[in-house]
């Protein structure tokens, strides 16, 4: 081999980046579980594998990048598990009346679970010593995509409700602290 000093440094850098890439399945394997849950809810849909692939790409990229982005992967999954699982717990025929309108409980659970996820992500982001914004963005993206698999049961309205609930939970709480570590 006997490389020159420059090429050795370059090879070492490449080895490091490849090593980081080999490290990513430790974070991205959970996407298989999320896609499996999604596939059980929406059998035969073409959207599940496409969104699953996007989630896999995103988690791989974040895990490879590391630091706050890498640390955001698992909190993102865990926060996203709330809207992924809670809406499906409601009985399909359960409805309630709000403001003279009949709402499916399943639809109503999406903003609620989004709110819980948003609050959880904001709380975890505030605990970070540095890189809070990347952490918040990364975890919110993963939680959003993960939760969408669950809230898609309630249609577009469910997904939008989950996003609104998430923003309602995360943004004010986070901005209230003026991002001191961002």
């Amino acid at each position: 081999m006997a490389l020159t000093e420059d090429s050795l440094m370059m090879r070492a850098r490449t080895s490091y980046e490849l090593g980081r890439l080999r490290h990513t399945p430790g974070d991205s394997w959970a996407v298989a579980l999320i896609v499996a849950v999604g596939a059980l809810r929406h059998p035969g849909g073409w959207l599940v594998p496409i969104v699953g692939l996007a989630l896999f790409g995103l988690t791989t990229l974040m895990s490879w990048r590391g630091q706050s982005w890498g640390r955001a992967v698992w909190p993102g999954y865990l926060a996203g598990a709330v809207p992924l699982l809670i809406p499906s717990l409601a009985p399909t025929s359960a409805v309630c009346w709000i403001g003279g309108n009949c709402w499916s409980v399943c639809v109503l659970l999406c903003p609620l679970s989004g709110l819980i996820a948003g609050l959880a992500i904001a709380l975890l982001a505030m605990k970070q010593d540095e890189g809070r914004v990347p952490f918040l963005l990364g975890a919110a993206l993963i939680a959003g995509i993960t939760g969408a698999f669950g809230c898609a049961l309630a249609g577009m309205l469910g997904i939008l409700g989950m996003i609104a609930g998430g923003l309602l939970g995360a943004v004010p709480m986070y901005l209230g602290l003026r991002l001191p570590g961002a």
């Binding site: 081999m1 006997a2 490389l3 070492a12 080895s15 490091y16 490849l18 090593g19 490290h23």
Partner: peptide
């Protein structure tokens, strides 16, 4: 020795994430 040292260095960086 030079070759082995270089190989060792590359392995150290390949495993740095772990």
């Amino acid at each position: 020795s030079e070759d082995v040292a270089q190989e060792a260095l590359l392995k150290v960086f390949a495993r740095a994430s772990n």
